[in-house]
Amino acid sequence: MDLIHAPFVPGVIQTTVDQVINWSRKSSLWYMLYGIACCSIEMMATGASRYDFDRFGLIYRGSPRQSDLMLVTGNVNLKMAKVLKQLYDQMAEPKWVIAVGSCAVSGGPFRGSYNMVDGVDQVVPVDVYLPGCPPRPEALLDAVLKLQRKIMRPQRQGVAS
């Protein structure tokens, strides 16, 4: 059976297997090192020792082919949108996207500008929207925790705490 796209047939044992797989996925969210604007500075701060992304299993990768998570940390312009889409397409399934900061969520301070993509969800599907200009590291950690909760319970639509 295709482990990636189809869960097991519901049943006591199979459900547990699903949970183990989901648990392993959420515990090793390797994110792509892809910083495109000022929000990336917060991502770097979160990755460094004070906030320590590693303790949630987040380790940065230099290649999209080794990544599970894309943090879009900044404003995406029309030229960059093509690159972003290409990088997303190169990531292996299953993959998730967090739109970090107002720019990635909606265009932020640059919304309506002639060269701006107003929200990265016009280019790639977004799992968690994280507002803020820029969001503090604690907020980024919270977004990651929400994503982990979403991965553990794929059947639930919302991820409200």
Partner: peptide, 22 residues
């Protein structure tokens, strides 16, 4: 150099009208 190759127009000219503008 800054905008995509297929971008139309020169946006810092005062008479530039952004076709996407609401």
């Amino acid at each position: 150099i800054l905008l995509a190759e297929d971008f139309e127009g020169h946006p810092l000219r005062k008479d530039y009208v952004d076709p996407r503008r609401r």
